[in-house]
Amino acid sequence: MTATATRPAPPTPPARHARRRRFSRQTREMWVLMLPALVPVLLFSVGPLLYGIALAFTDARNTRNHETSFVGLENLGDLLTAEDFWSSFRIGMIWAVSVTGLQFLAALGLALLLNQDLRFRGVARVLAVVPWAMPPVVIGLMWKLVYHPDAGILNSVLGTHVNWLADFSLALPAIIVVGVWTGMPQTTVVLLAGLQNVPRELYEAVEVDGAGRWRKFWNITLPQLKPVIVAITSLDFVWNINQFGLVYVLTQGGPGGQTRLPMLFAYEEAFRYRFAGYASMLGLAMAVVVLAALGLYLWRQMREAK
């Protein structure tokens, strides 16, 4: 199609007419071919999404005898003045930023290590990917046992008697550790792939100049990895702020709402207290916040890259 567009076209009317017909026929075929793929997307993804957005502007409740009516931005107003929401939002931000940050640092370390010429490198690489193979619910149950106040291995190793997941100040750090552990494999694998794409010649060139390990890392590895880092941290951030299953299994948002991430909050509003409209507005607001944060971050990275 690009070829058609750039070709210097003779401006005779009948030819243009013919080309337009061919073009529209192409379009038609494209649509027909895309239809099987498009239907499920429209039906199961775009449809519910639009429905959710529409719900956000109503006072819908999950009840049988409630007449839903349009309320405009009332839900948004309620949301912005609710202390619960802001504390949940704050917890969500602490969670997403610290998990993403720590995940990145730990994964970078691991990836650098696995990129070395170690013995048993193959085995080590496989082991590093193991958490990836586990569903979040299984990870949650496993860590619940680790943190168990009486039978957990953490307390028996440390010789303490702490109820990690029920303590007001320890619960959030405790689940952040689990979050970091869970997300490390993806990040490690992507960074490792990035590391292996750094051209050898660059290292050889600076070695000639007599650069040490640190300089090599700082001046070659990091700038070369930058596009990969930007991509994986933004994906991790989105993934983390929308985390639900793991925390639902570990703490259900407790104790006293100390680990109530925004998605848990929305779930509670919709399925426990049955305010479907309010919960939809919450989901919508979070989507907007994530998109805005991400857009800003990516835009700045792009500008720097230029």
Binding site: D84, G256, E268, Y273
Partner: peptide
Amino acid sequence: NGFDEWKSKVATPALQE
């Protein structure tokens, strides 16, 4: 009506503290 939300959002943390 709303006892469940009162319990989990307000009363549980307040009484625990």
